[in-house]
């Protein structure tokens, strides 16, 4: 047991650095994918065929591609396009691009749960597009969007470990570093799991609470 605790305390800085990077990736990609995902959702329901087609194409491509391949393209493809950003930025973009496809679908189905009559009534009353969106549609869609959204963010948090394979030193890379230092992998992995559970648990608890309160729209 003492040995187990020692593995953590000796290498505390490595753990902290790794998980700090994880949280940073999560925060950046999380906020970004919510924005981009909503945009994509708006595109998919818009009356403009070109935007609808692009949104549908993007979502279908991404949903059928492994996340690791999205990463690989970004890390090895974009330099050819003369885009030179840090690997951290690339990782955030990869996670963002991947997750926003799923956010898009949730937002789209959420918007579609609001009865058409609500929108028609609002427009009949003379509300503008923005008013309809912000006062009528989004508040009602919120209930059915939020729990799946939290679970998507949950998955995003876990997906950040994939960045370990692509030059970003976050939680998934910790065990490689520590084993080169001579630590046994079992306690290392156990500690990584514990830290992850610590991060993931609040999200799961929040999601369950919300589902129970709002009865789950599905």
């Amino acid at each position: 047991m003492g040995e187990f605790l020692r593995v953590f305390s000796d290498n505390r800085s490595i753990f902290v650095d790794g998980f700090l990077t994880t949280i940073q990736l999560f925060a950046l990609a999380g906020v970004g994918c919510l924005v981009v995902g909503t945009l994509l959702g708006a595109m998919r329901v818009s009356p403009i065929p070109a935007l609808r087609a692009f949104g549908a194409f993007y979502v279908n491509m991404i949903r059928n591609t492994p996340l690791t391949l999205v990463f690989a393209f970004l890390i090895f493809g974009t330099p050819k396009l003369n885009v030179n950003l840090s690997f951290f930025t690339f990782a955030s973009i990869a996670l963002l691009a991947y997750t926003s496809a799923f956010v898009c679908e949730v937002v789209r189905s959420g918007i579609n749960t609001v009865p058409v009559g609500q929108g028609e009534a609002a427009r009949a009353l003379g509300m503008t597009f923005t008013q309809v969106l912000s006062l009528i549609v989004l508040p009602q869609a919120f209930r059915s969007i939020t729990p799946p959204l939290i679970s998507i963010l949950n998955a995003l948090l876990k997906n950040t470990t994939v960045a370990a394979g692509f030059a970003v030193g976050e939680a998934g890379a910790i065990q490689d570093i520590l084993s080169e230092l001579g630590e046994k992998r079992t306690p290392t992995l156990l500690w990584i799991t514990i830290c992850f559970l610590g991060l993931v648990l609040p999200l799961i608890v929040a999601q369950r609470a919300l589902e129970r309160r709002w009865g789950g729209n599905r």
């Binding site: 009356p47 070109a50 918007i111 579609n112 058409v116 929108g119």
Partner: peptide
């Protein structure tokens, strides 16, 4: 596309023209 959706009204002639313009613009951009 559904005839009316909750966010967008049935497009009238001006809206149709605008939509077509945006559509062309977006396609060119892509």
């Amino acid at each position: 596309q559904p005839v009316t959706s909750v966010l967008y009204d049935m497009p009238g002639p001006r809206a149709r023209r605008r939509n077509r313009a945006i559509s062309v613009g977006a396609s060119l951009l892509i």
